[in-house]
Simulated scan of single mutants.
Amino acid sequence: MGNSSLILCFVLLICAMLAVLTKKLTVSAAGLASCIGLLVFYAMGIKELLMLCLFFGLAVLATSHKKIDKARLLALSKHEETRGAGQVFANGGVAGLLAVLCLIDVSHTDVYKIMMVGSLAAALADTLSSELGTLYGRSFYNMLTFKHDIRGEDGVVSVEGTLIGLMASALMGIVYAGLNKVAVFIAIAGFLGNLFDSILGASLERKQYLGNNGVNFLNTLLGALMVLFFFC
């Protein structure tokens, strides 16, 4: 193991410890996040690892932003902020699996890398549209019926939250690829994944056929598959 790898392991360990101490992640979630980060780094590279860190950092900020106000708006005693291992896998599991594919199928590494960013774009779009849309949305609608619905319920969206999700996925695309068609594909993939998440929330999650983690995992999977569709 080279010096750069040792430094990376040390940095990830420190970040994991800080996440646990600040109650952003449980111990198991921090361990899983570190493993996914290391896997992405070794299979894909530092750029892709930084994209993973960008998602996590923005997700933490969005979750922490005005959490007391969100708890009040959602009529909860406390807005949940600490993420467990299931939530980490739901948002980053596809990235980890694509990293494994990179190691197995090295001839298509570039495609797997872009797919990974598409999955993160979908995850970030969902997180920011949910966390910030709850605060700044004015009217809320059921994604299936388009009728007014209760803020914070599964599958309920707002125009403001949807636009925030689009901007989030566009940010991931621009940071990764710059201003070109690759960034556009990533932005669209992330946006469509977010819409798919809301559709699943309004249908399968409300009927308790799927939990929130399952919905989020499928959201990120669709984001990755949409990028693959655009490049095939």
Results as ranks from 00 to 15, higher is better:
1 M>S: 12
3 N>P: 10
8 L>H: 11
8 L>P: 15
9 C>A: 15
11 V>P: 14
14 I>N: 04
14 I>F: 06
15 C>V: 15
15 C>G: 14
18 L>E: 04
18 L>R: 08
18 L>F: 11
20 V>M: 05
21 L>T: 07
21 L>N: 03
31 G>K: 05
33 A>Y: 01
34 S>P: 13
37 G>I: 03
37 G>D: 09
39 L>F: 11
39 L>D: 09
41 F>W: 13
44 M>G: 10
45 G>T: 03
46 I>P: 07
47 K>T: 10
47 K>Y: 09
48 E>C: 08
52 L>A: 12
52 L>H: 05
53 C>Y: 05
53 C>W: 03
57 G>T: 15
58 L>D: 00
58 L>R: 03
58 L>Q: 01
59 A>N: 03
61 L>A: 07
63 T>Y: 06
67 K>Y: 12
68 I>S: 11
69 D>H: 10
69 D>M: 14
70 K>T: 13
70 K>I: 14
73 L>P: 04
74 L>R: 07
75 A>P: 00
76 L>R: 15
76 L>F: 11
78 K>I: 09
78 K>R: 14
82 T>A: 07
83 R>T: 11
84 G>H: 04
86 G>P: 02
89 F>N: 12
91 N>L: 12
92 G>S: 12
93 G>V: 10
94 V>H: 01
95 A>R: 05
96 G>Y: 13
97 L>V: 15
100 V>E: 02
104 I>V: 13
108 H>Y: 15
109 T>S: 12
111 V>M: 15
114 I>L: 15
120 L>I: 05
121 A>C: 08
126 D>Y: 02
128 L>A: 07
129 S>E: 06
129 S>V: 00
130 S>Q: 05
130 S>G: 12
138 R>H: 12
140 F>A: 08
144 L>M: 02
145 T>D: 04
146 F>Y: 06
146 F>I: 01
150 I>Q: 06
151 R>V: 09
151 R>Y: 01
152 G>A: 08
154 D>K: 05
155 G>M: 01
157 V>H: 03
158 S>K: 08
158 S>T: 06
158 S>D: 10
160 E>D: 07
161 G>V: 00
164 I>P: 01
165 G>L: 00
165 G>Y: 00
167 M>G: 10
174 I>L: 06
175 V>I: 11
176 Y>R: 08
176 Y>Q: 09
177 A>S: 14
181 K>W: 11
182 V>I: 10
183 A>K: 01
188 I>W: 05
189 A>I: 00
189 A>H: 00
192 L>M: 09
193 G>W: 06
195 L>H: 01
195 L>N: 04
198 S>H: 02
199 I>W: 00
200 L>P: 02
202 A>M: 02
203 S>M: 03
207 K>Y: 02
207 K>T: 09
210 L>D: 03
212 N>I: 12
214 G>P: 02
218 L>E: 12
223 G>K: 12
226 M>L: 15
227 V>Q: 10
227 V>W: 06
229 F>W: 14
229 F>N: 12
230 F>T: 10
230 F>Q: 12
